[in-house]
Structure formats: C-alpha cells, structure tokens
Write a protein that binds this DNA or RNA. Structure first.
Lengths: 212, 212
DNA sequence: GGATTACGATACTGATGAGTAGCGTAAGCG
DNA sequence: CGCTTACGCTACTCATCAGTATCGTAATCC
C-alpha cells in the first residue's frame, strides 16, 4: 500500500492547472455524445459549451479519444448491489437501480448510454472502456440482485439459469427504445419492463405449463 | 389504377444504365455498414468492393444518404405474420422469424441492424427510413405472432397487455448483445431469449404468485 | 520581481472524404 | 455510321475537423 504514491503533489514551478472545471468539461462531453453522433461531436464545440479554450482541453487530454475516455471514467460506476439499500423485494431492488442517480438518472443515463455504445463503434479503445466501466458493471448489478433473490428463495432455484440473460433485459430494452424506436424512456418505461417482462419470467417454474 | 405508370420504359437515346449489378452495390453498402461506422464507410470503398466506379454510384444515388436509403429499401421487409407458415406453436412461430432469410439470416441481419440503427444517428432522413422499413415491421411480426397466440387461447387473455413490450424483447436483446457487449449472436442466442425470457413471461397469469 | 507554466484567442497545418469535371471508350438507337 | 448517354478513370474542389503553433496575459513559486 503506497503511502505516498499520488499524482506528484510536488509543487512544480509556474502557474498550476485549474482543475476546478475539469469535471464540467467531462460532463459536457457526455452531454454532447448523448445528443450527436461521436464523429459529429467536435472538440471546438465541447470547449465552447464548457466555456474553455480548445487548447486547454488539449493540455489535459491529448486526443479526442482520450477526452471521451476520461469522460467515461469520470462518469462513475453504476451502483454495486451491496451498496444499495436492501429493499426486501426484488421489484424494489430493481427499481432502486433504475432510480439511482448514476449518470444523472434514468433519462440522461439512457441518452448517454446510447451515445457511448454508438461511439464505441469508432474506436477499439473506446469500445473496451465502455464495456468495462459502463456496460458490464451495469448488467452486473441486475445480475447480482436477481441472484440474491434466488439465494433468498424469493425466486425458485430452478430458475437460476435464466438470471444471466434476464439481467440484460432492462439495459437492452431501454437501449432499443431510444436507439431503435427513437422514443426516450422515462421511469414508467423501466417499470413496465420490470413488471411485464423481468418479474413474470421469474414467476413460474419451468415445466409443461409453458405456452405451446 | 394506372395501367402504364411505370418508370418510363420509353427508350431514351444513348447507352442504357446497366442495372444488373445495382442490387450488389446495395448489398455491399449494407455489408460495409455492418462492419464499420457510417461515417467511416466511404463511397470510394463501397465502389471498389462492388467493382464499379465511384462516378457510377453517383449517377444513381446523388448523395451518400441516398445510397444508404436505397440500400435500406432494397433490403426488403421482414416477413409478415400471415406469410409465414403457421407452425402451430408460439415457440415455433417465433423461431421461424429468427430463421427467416431476411437480411441474410440471423447473424448478418443483426450486424446490419446494428449498423443501421447506429447510422440513423447521423441523419434524420435515415432515421425515419430505418424505423419505418426495418425496426417497426420487425417488431410488428413478433407482435402479430404473440397476439395470435393470445387470440387462439394458447396464452392467457389477461396477459395480452404484455404483448407490445414482449414483442420488442428479441430485437432489443440481440441488439444489446452485439452493440453493447460486442458478442455476435447466433441462432442459439435467439433460442435462449425465446425460451428464457419471452415464453416464461407469458406462462403465468398475473397474481400474488409474482416474486416479491 | 523574475522564472516558469497555465490560460485564452486566433491562426494555421494536414488529412480525410463527399461530391464534381473531363475524357477516352463502350453500348445502344435510328 | 452518327447521335447520345453510360462507364471507368483520374484529377480536382471544397468543407470539416483533429491537432499544433504562437503570443499576450495571468497565476504561482522563489
């Protein structure tokens, strides 16, 4: 455990970086990606919206990819299952994720998520980062919550094999909603998905009663 | 009903267009969109892969958007519910759509679908066309098949309200698979979604037995 | 106050790619 | 054959945008 391994707080000569607005720049970057396609997001536009000079952005992040990468890192991870309040019921647990403030709540989160997965098609580095720090952890929360419900006996144990796939349903359905049909998805949409798809798929033990 | 309203087969002077390879150009266009992002698909590259001169492409489609638009139109619609063989069971009906040759079968179809929805972010005209001729009819087949199962009593009538949402599950899950996690989806994936998500969500009448 | 470095602003370079022009040749029509 | 238009090819124009260079000014350290 390095006791002093930080970002060299050793004072360098000259005027120091003004980091106070870096977070805002990265937030603006995500907003821009939520609105326009990656290739149409220009550094000039981001700089202008953030109220900083383009050269200032380049002093911090050497390329456009690095800027977006930093924005993704700075966005923070989705909540982890064990840091969420235990709501007692699976339904409430799932909706707690929906209602979490990660990426600014359901609406903005979805727009950014769509923008990032689209942007991932432009760069392998970006694709890896988005998967590692956004997509996978996001699905992982749902998977953990579903698995916990199985472990507690709130869901029949035979249904455990469905958990990995069902954990993808909420991200997938919301992404499809915005990306393919174009409609934004508010909280009600997520509630419908939970109530009409995820929970019903866990309500019945497998067997001959499955619809023909 | 115009008896002679076609594309002016009235012979014009000069060498006629060689339409024999237009379909191939459009197919190449879709292939390119399946591989690279819209902005990275160049007309030069498409022309070269199709073995035609760039100017020939421009003689047919005045802009890049028009080319892609034409490619989308030419791709053909997804099957309609009533032109599919009636398999008798809902499961077989759904898988018949999966196995349909539309867009070259499950694998290629998904890659193109992902490319098109991503490309839709670059142009409103494109977004409209993709929605109208691809996304909506695609979801519509599933919706029709699910509704038919309800009408036949193969699915409990109380579950009918779930149909619109469940009709989106297969497109959404496959899109998420390729777009967000990066893994391609073969037939097995679709089968899993049908067996672990869609059918189970229709297997149980709503009531107090839903998992807490 | 002098050295050093960040900041903003403006101007620039260089690459990429959509779309066009020109031309020699090929293919139909009369 | 002569007219006309498609085809392939090469070369071009033009806009956009990532990334750089320069410079006057502001902030911090000694």
């Amino acid at each position: 455990m390095g006791t002093e391994d930080d970002v060299t707080p050793v004072a360098r000569p000259g005027r120091p970086y003004d980091r106070s607005r870096d977070a805002q720049i990265l937030a603006v970057t995500l907003d821009a990606l939520a609105e326009r396609e990656y290739e149409h997001v220009t550094i000039d536009a981001v700089a202008q919206r953030a109220g900083r000079a383009k050269t200032t952005l380049y002093r911090r992040w050497p390329t456009k990819v690095d800027l977006v990468l930093a924005a993704v890192e700075a966005a923070g991870r989705p909540p982890e299952a064990d840091e969420l309040p235990d709501e007692g019921t699976l339904r409430a647990d799932l909706l707690a994720v929906v209602d979490s403030p990660w990426l600014g709540g359901p609406e903005r989160r979805l727009a950014i998520f769509t923008g990032l997965t689209s942007a991932a098609r432009s760069s392998d580095r970006l694709a890896d980062a988005v998967r590692t720090t956004v997509t996978e952890p996001y699905v992982a929360v749902y998977r953990a919550l579903l698995q916990r419900a199985v472990d507690r006996g709130q869901v029949a144990a035979e249904l455990a094999p469905r958990v990995p796939l069902l954990a993808q349903v909420i991200p997938a359905m919301s992404g499809h909603r915005l990306g393919a049909t174009g409609e934004p998805a508010g909280r009600e949409f997520f509630v419908s998905v939970v109530d009409q798809v995820v929970l019903p798929a866990l309500a019945h033990p497998p067997g001959p009663a499955t619809p023909a």
